[in-house]
Simulated scan of single mutants.
Amino acid sequence: MQRFLRNPARVGTPAATSAAVSRQMAAPIPEHGDPLVVELGAGTGAVTEWIQHRLGGRGHHLAIEIDPVFAGLLRTRWPGLDVAEADAAQLPALLAERGLGAADVIVSALPWTLFSEEQARDILTAVAASLAPHGAFTTITLSLGRRMPSARRFRDSLASTFEEVTESRTFWRNPPPAFVYEAHRPRQRRPSAGS
């Protein structure tokens, strides 16, 4: 709560994501194989726990967290977790540095409605560039802000970035109430005329 009050744009919400929402966000992780899962805005690890449970020791889990205190907490709680203390827009570079390919699933708890239009666009572009063609992108969004212009802009950006975007039911017991977007099939960016 103190970190939220000091910097709400960086922390996003005053409370951890509920188990029900975390489970919904981690649901696209395949039950078999060795998937690469990227988590954006891992925070205190509420969603991290469900990703780790779903993976059950398989694959690779890269957690990206910009806040150094939260990044340290994640490293302490899950010593084997690959934690990058970085901005989510750096995702393609972070994957390349580690010799990792495209992600099978990207899970995000980033506070999209608090970002500028440019920040949100940069991060969504990084997500689309880093996701495998068969992959899934899930992200939490707060129900209370869904009518805000920034929330509508984000929804439009999702639709222009992915061919398919679905919305979960509202999780009223999440503090505050939230829902999850799930997106598939990043759209191919066509070169502009003259390039």
Rank of each mutant, 00 (worst) to 15 (best):
L91V: 04
G135L: 07
M25R: 11
L91P: 06
G59K: 09
G33N: 14
M148E: 09
P186F: 12
H53V: 03
P191S: 04
Y181F: 15
G101E: 10
E118D: 13
H184C: 06
L94C: 05
T48N: 07
I106W: 08
G99L: 07
Q52G: 08
E39P: 03
E167W: 08
S108A: 14
G12H: 11
R10T: 11
A88F: 13
P186G: 03
R152S: 07
H32K: 13
R23N: 04
P177V: 11
L95E: 04
A19E: 10
L114I: 00
T139F: 08
I51V: 15
L36Q: 07
S130R: 10
R6L: 12
E167H: 10
D82S: 15
A178M: 09
A20Y: 06
N174D: 09
S160E: 15
P177L: 13
E163F: 06
E163W: 04
G135I: 02
D122S: 12
L5S: 01
L95T: 06
P8M: 08
S168C: 03
R58S: 03
S143Q: 13
G57Y: 09
W50A: 09
P92E: 10
L62N: 08
A89F: 10
I106Y: 04
P35I: 12
F70K: 00
M25F: 06
F70D: 01
S18C: 05
E65D: 03
A159R: 15
I106Q: 05
F115W: 11
R98F: 05
P68A: 12
R187D: 04
F179K: 03
R190K: 13
P8R: 12
H184T: 04
P92M: 08
E182A: 15
G80V: 00
S157Q: 15
D104Y: 03
G33I: 14
R185P: 00
P28D: 12
Q2N: 03
P149Y: 13
A93N: 11
V38F: 13
R98T: 01
A88W: 12
R173P: 00
G43M: 03
